[in-house]
Amino acid sequence: MDEPLHGSGHTRIRGPQPLAAGLGLVGLGLLGVWAGSDLPQGSMRAMGPGFLPRWLSVGITLCGLALAASGLLRDGQRLPSIALRGPAVVMLAILAFALTIRPVAVGPLTTPGLGLIVAGPLAILLAGYASPEARFRELVILALFLTAGCMLLFGDLLNLPIPIFPAFVLEALSGSVSPRLLLRAVAAGLGLTGLGLLAIGRGTRRRAVDVVPHSITT
């Protein structure tokens, strides 16, 4: 992807990559100018909130123009190839985590706050499929172990204010079990389930497919 197109007589645009990058910067600069256009510029003595954003945006636009010009005048690199699967799936996983960890209002709808115990495995299972090498069982085991570990690490040990369980479960349980005990019990349960799956898998494992050529193992 990085080799320049030397002697590319047949294409008119000599550096498509810098040209595109430059145009992108110009777009961003203009967006900045527009977004900051309602802000007062102020004076030297009392600089307004709009002063710096405006000049920065102008600077970005100029950089973009220079870059685009160099793309037209000088040989540069080809346009990069951009994959779709990875970015799309990873974005989906991140979105799923953000929407389920606690109640979020999206327009008129509010997502249910399901806590780490749902958001975590969901994110891992989804994200795993960003790679073409994904295998469902393996991801389930990973999700079980990681969620259990994160619950203990973030919820119990570091005591961070992150919702672990769905709000309705906590409400239903309030009083009968201390949340910390519940957390430990459930984490243990997840961990054991993971171990169980791992043990089952060892018995029925298919050969060859699971061993990806790996420089460290060779």
Binding site: I101, G120, I124, C150, P161
Partner: peptide, 21 residues
């Protein structure tokens, strides 16, 4: 040495939890 297909979902989850916190 953990295969990358398992490593990146883990990194992603740690990032998400950390940022949320």
């Amino acid at each position: 040495k953990v295969p990358y297909r398992l490593m990146f979902p883990a990194i992603l989850m740690f990032c998400a939890i950390g940022i949320y916190s």
